[in-house]
Simulated scan of single mutants.
Amino acid sequence: MKHSYSFPILLISLLFVTISLSALNTQVPLWLVRNEFSLGQIGLVGSSYFTGNLIGTIFANWFISRFNARHTYTYSCIIFAIATIGLSFSINFYSWIMWRFFIGIACAVTWVVIESCILLTGPVHTRGRMLAVYLTTYYLGTVLGQALLQYFPQDVLYFGLVIMLLMGLAILFILRTHYKLPKRKKSSFNIMPMILNKPSRLGLTGCIIAGMLIGSLYSLLPAYYSHLGYSDIQVANWMILLILSGVIAQMPANWCADKFGRQIVLLIESLFMLVACIMLIFNWFNALAIILLGATIYTIYPISMAWACSCVKKQDIVAMNQAMLLTNTLGSLIAPAVIAFIMDKMNNTYLFVSFAIISLYFIVLLIKKRGTDAQPQKST
């Protein structure tokens, strides 16, 4: 790439955005709990963020074509900052749904910009490594956001001002890059053939399930711990343990999937996830259970994504990626609202009961599919 320094600068910008998002995703449920919102309402606010992700994913390419990559990213950061400040206008259920929706749009657009810059401007022989560094940076920012949460102001307005500062730094760095993405004359958004592609169906199912689980964790786990009487710092520490477990498990899980087959690894992970849920339901070895939960939930998506992509031709991989991102987002926006409603009607433990049912369903599907695991294709 002509401007080789653009990639590390892009990652620094991403780090500021991810720290902001991570801190906000944990703090929002805590604010809602303090203001005596029901779990059903908390789940709907969480789902509104993922609905914004869905809309942002669909229209991101249009924004990029109209405003170019760096300006689209800049406008997204501005929307993120304004929407976070907007949360302080009133602790009102409908206004918070609206502001979280806009934050979801902004985040999805920034991810599409970053991934497009890597995929379309990076050298082919280093693209995989660049994506790996990108994901590592994203997870690092997520962990840092949780670790730094105790130093953020607790007041909604001042918290928003800190986010505005971080977004300003993200904009400053992105404008120092030299990324230019080609404009598309026609939209290539045609995912129905990918969704209907039978060999990739279980891979797509894994993406949906990963979205359901991760979306519910981000939206409801902080509220779960808050209802147990944990302080904000303790909640953040549990979230750090969960996410770090997923980060550490990434390389071993994906290596095993390449070596032994994706179906068998997903089956083993689903079994471990079921065990973790049972442990959490009965309050057995909570730390170990959270480690198991993070290590399995955060690795289901990349393995499922690799499975689905291995089932289509090279020219269809972009469309398949769009299908996977959309199905993942659909799972993320539906599950928090449904599970929160169940928790509200029953009790908080039904968060993990719901996870156990989802993992059991995936186990049944994988067992039925025995002997037909999609093996990795040779790179072309």
Results as ranks from 00 to 15, higher is better:
residue 144 L to Q: 11
residue 143 V to L: 14
residue 175 L to I: 04
residue 140 L to D: 00
residue 156 V to E: 10
residue 169 L to N: 08
residue 143 V to E: 04
residue 169 L to K: 14
residue 152 F to L: 15
residue 146 Q to I: 03
residue 150 Q to M: 12
residue 175 L to Q: 02
residue 145 G to R: 08
residue 132 A to Y: 04
residue 170 A to I: 04
residue 149 L to V: 06
residue 156 V to L: 15
residue 147 A to E: 12
residue 138 Y to N: 13
residue 140 L to E: 00
residue 158 Y to D: 05
residue 141 G to F: 07
residue 135 L to R: 01
residue 146 Q to C: 07
residue 152 F to R: 14
residue 160 G to M: 03
residue 137 T to S: 10
residue 151 Y to W: 14
residue 144 L to W: 12
residue 140 L to Q: 00
residue 161 L to I: 15
residue 167 M to K: 15
residue 153 P to W: 07
residue 134 Y to H: 05
residue 146 Q to M: 11
residue 130 M to D: 01
residue 148 L to F: 11
residue 159 F to N: 12
residue 162 V to F: 02
residue 173 F to P: 00
residue 165 L to P: 09
residue 173 F to Y: 02
residue 155 D to Q: 11
residue 168 G to E: 05
residue 164 M to W: 13
residue 170 A to D: 01
residue 138 Y to I: 12
residue 141 G to N: 07
residue 134 Y to I: 09
residue 154 Q to D: 00
residue 170 A to K: 06
residue 133 V to E: 00
residue 170 A to S: 10
residue 161 L to Y: 15
residue 142 T to H: 00
residue 162 V to M: 11
residue 154 Q to C: 01
residue 165 L to R: 12
residue 132 A to S: 12
residue 130 M to C: 05
residue 145 G to V: 07
residue 156 V to N: 09
residue 132 A to M: 09
residue 164 M to D: 04
residue 135 L to S: 01
residue 157 L to E: 08
residue 138 Y to H: 13
residue 160 G to E: 02
